Simulated assay, not measured.
Amino acid sequence: MSLSFEHTTLGQRVLFGSGKAAENLAAETSRLGAGSIMVIASDFEMPMARTVAAGIEVTLWHNEVVMHVPIETAHAARDAATNARIDLIVCVGGGSTTGLAKAVALETGIPIIAVPTTYAGSEATNVWGLTEAARKTTGVDDRVLPVTVIYDAELTLSLPVEMSVASGLNGMAHCIDSLWGPRADPINAALAAEGIRALAQGLPKIKNDPAGLPGREQALYGAYLSAVAFASAGSGMHHKICHVLGGTFNLPHAQTHATVLPYVLAFNAPHAPEAEARAAAAFGADTALGGLQALRELLDAPRALEDYGFTEAGIAEAVEVALPAIPASNPRRVTADNLAALLTAALNGADPKTLTDLS
C-alpha cells in the first residue's frame, strides 16, 4: 500500500535538562534579545517561577491564573502586558498557565518561553482555548506556539503523585486522539506511539518513587511527544468531549481527560484496527484498551466523572454541545444516543467494554 499524506512540523526550540531551567532560561532570553519580560505563574507556582527566573530581569510578575482561561482573565493579562510594553512572556506552570500566556500572545503576538511543571503538553502546540459564558472555544494559531520550551524534571517533583497520574494520562489522551484525529498521518502516529510508550513507563516510576527523576523525565519526554503529535493530527473526539466538560461544567482538566480516555478508546478502537494495533504495541499489550486499563489500575487513576461534580442532569447538555464539534472523520459514527451512553458510562465509572457493541 502506497503512502500519501501531508504533514506540517511546527518550528520550536526545546531545551531539556534536569536542574538546568534557570540556566537555560537566562541563555534563551539573552538569545532572543528580550528587553521587557513578563512572567506568568499561579500563586502556587510563583516561588518556583522566581527561582527559575533568578537570572533574568523581570518587568512584570502576573499571577492571575484560572483554569480553562476565562476570557476576562485573558483580557486582564493582555492589558497588563500591553501597558508594560512586554516583548517576551515566560510562563512557568501547568496547562492553565500556558493557556493564559497563549491567550495574551493570540492578540498581541508577543513570543512565549514555556517552562512546564506538569505533563499537560500545551507548551508544544499551537492550539489555544478560551472560556466565555460557560462555553470553551478552541482554535489554532501559530502566534500562540511558544518559541522555546524549557523542560526540567526537577520542577515537577512538587507535583503530587495523584496529579502526576492525571496530568500524564492527559498526555496519553493526546497520543490516543492523534491516532485518529482529523489530520492523522504516519509521522504523528509514530510520535504518538512513542509518547504512549514513554508515559506508560514513566508514570509507574513516579508512583513508586515520587522523588526520583527517571520517571519524571520519561513522563516529560512523553508529554512533549504527545503534544507534537496532537498539534499535527488535530483535536479528535476525546478532546471535543473534554473541552465541553471543562468549559461548560468547570470540571478539572487533567482528571476529566484521565477519566474519559478509556471510554473513547473503547468506543473507537474496534473501528480503527491499525490505530488500535499501534497503541497496543506501544503499551506492550494484546489490546490497546487492555494496556490502558492495566496501566490505570496500576496507577489508581481517576475512574468516574461523578467524583468531580458531573451529574446525570448534565448529560443532555453535554451531548448537545459536543456532538456538532466531533470531527466527521471519527472512526465510528457518533450519534446523540451513543454519545450519551459514553458519558453515562464515564459518569458512573462503568466498564468501558460495554461501549464496544453500541450501535
Rank of each mutant, 00 (worst) to 15 (best):
F5V: 03
F5M: 09
L15D: 00
E28K: 00
T29S: 15
S36W: 11
A41K: 05
L60D: 00
V66G: 05
A77R: 06
A105N: 02
G109Q: 07
A124C: 13
W128K: 08
G129F: 04
T131L: 05
T138R: 07
G139E: 06
V144L: 15
V149D: 04
Y151M: 06
A153H: 08
V161G: 04
L169V: 01
A173N: 11
G181S: 11
D185N: 15
I196R: 11
Q201V: 03
L203I: 15
L203K: 07
N208T: 14
D209Y: 09
A211Q: 15
R216K: 02
G222A: 03
A229P: 04
A231C: 10
C242Y: 00
L245G: 02
F249C: 13
F249S: 14
P270R: 03
E274V: 10
E274I: 03
E274C: 00
A275G: 14
A281K: 09
A282S: 12
L299S: 07
E306Y: 10
D307L: 09
A313Q: 10
A313F: 02
G314D: 12
E317W: 07
E320H: 01
V321K: 12
A322D: 10
S329P: 01
P331S: 08
T335I: 07
N338G: 00
A340N: 11
A340H: 01
A346M: 07
A350K: 13
K353G: 09
